[in-house]
Design a protein around this nucleic acid. Structure first.
Lengths: 251, 251
DNA sequence: CCCATTTCCGTAGGCCATACGGAAAGAATA
DNA sequence: TATTCTTTCCGTATGGCCTACGGAAATGGG
């Protein structure tokens, strides 16, 4: 299971591709069999179905019925292709600025999570040094506008933004990690924990871990629904606490 | 730049290795040249110096002056080795339960960040489906005990724990991402942004991004110190807000 | 038709993880 | 001392991936 980092490759080439316009037809030369858009779309489809680890240049070429090496005429490398993919799916969010600043941030969080759920391979793409494409930038403008409307000072807006952004992407990634790993290993999250029953039986030490033991006995680990449901409720809880804390700092 | 996911490999074998005792000498058979501890230590040293992507089985074997394939006698595979590495560095935290519940969580956060700073490759290891080793379990017990002491109900302790854990690891990873990428690409974070100056010049649209433009003009993006300093202040801000929110929920 | 341009893509090279099985090392036993 | 059994070592081999390079193919303009 390999994971790729966005922001790799040549920044200038990546930028040009991220902000590309529809290509003007060239007066001379061979006509292209495929476009950059088609390559990105095919790569996303492969990653959606098989995971990012299985998305090789050869696999994408196969999807497009072209030769592997021909892809390099259009994208400089795999790293750049991943940047393009990440930005393309972020563009699916369709953020609509309605309601209070908190509602807007929650809307952003929900749409971001939806993207991770639709494309679980996003978990495997670092969003810390992200591609500065339209999908990402539009999302950041959206959150910044919401935070600016909360009454925070400019300096605190940017700091809060980093905290919110980090939380949302991190939590969304955690939430789908279960789903993504299940796909790759052919094992559901619940059965993975079951397979780890051996840990509880053979290695867990109640004297070493008294709090966990007490919490277990108090029913604190009882799940309602699936693991993903619980990740979701933790996500909501954490975001609410974070927004409460930001809001508390306004008074 | 490849990134690995912990929790890979055979769970039972991994558990046995995570909770291993010093090996009893065997009555017959060839004496081992290296131990599991030595392999893990060498792998950590390689990852610290060259990044996780450069840490191949061949590279670790070279570090130990043994043949690559001999490593597989001791660890089942690379995935398991990475689990062992992650747990080993988490054990470096040396958590001491002193002070209020908030102080203890902050202590945990600081120690966790220190681990990520000392071993930036931890950024590249998913901690969502983690190895259930002593390093990790001890840390979780520590946070759970702090949260239990805050007065939260058991069910809320576990939910808050997931939020805190996710925030701390995510933020720590973000903070060192800058550092890690700089090492890999031989480029500092500041110069990376500099190289992206082209974005601001050629692609940024003030009409599309009015809030960003206003914030920029208001000096909200002016940095004090390095990018890592700013990540740190965002980390502190976010954690404070999260803990404020948790504390607010107690009243 | 010829030339220049653009795209296609096979070949080749380098790197990685790891299955397999013969060889080497060491202790116990006859 | 020699033999046997066990354990470890590790070279060879296999399959997979990314991408540099350069000849071939396709296309339009003069």
């Amino acid at each position: 299971m390999a994971v790729e980092r966005s922001g790799g490759g040549d920044p200038l080439k990546t930028l040009a591709l991220l902000w590309r316009r529809p290509p003007e037809p060239k007066p001379v030369g061979r006509k292209p069999k495929v476009s950059v858009d088609q390559i990105v779309t095919a790569a996303i489809a492969v990653a959606d179905r098989e995971g990012l680890g299985a998305m090789s240049m050869a696999r994408v070429a196969q999807e497009l019925a072209v030769g592997t090496m021909s892809l390099y005429t259009h994208v400089p490398g795999k790293a750049e292709l991943i940047d393009l993919m990440a930005d393309a799916v972020l563009r699916e969010r369709d953020l609509t600025p309605e309601g209070s600043w908190r509602e807007r941030i929650k809307h952003y969080a929900d749409r971001t999570r939806a993207v991770y759920r639709a494309h679980p391979w996003m978990r495997d793409v670092s969003m810390v040094r992200p591609p500065l494409g339209p999908g990402l930038m539009d999302g950041q403008e959206f959150v910044l506008a919401a935070l600016a409307d909360s009454g925070l000072e400019p300096r605190h807006v940017t700091v809060a933004h980093v905290a919110v952004e980090g939380f949302v992407h991190g939590a969304a990634a955690s939430e789908v990690d279960d789903q993504q790993l299940a796909r790759v290993t052919g094992e559901s999250g619940d059965s993975w924990w079951g397979a780890r029953q051996v840990f509880w039986d053979d290695y867990f030490d109640v004297e070493r871990y008294p709090t966990m033991t007490n919490l277990w006995n108090a029913g604190a680990y009882e799940t309602q629904g699936t693991l993903a449901d619980n990740m979701r409720s933790s996500f909501d809880y954490g975001l609410d606490r974070l927004l409460d804390g930001i809001e508390g700092g306004l008074r």
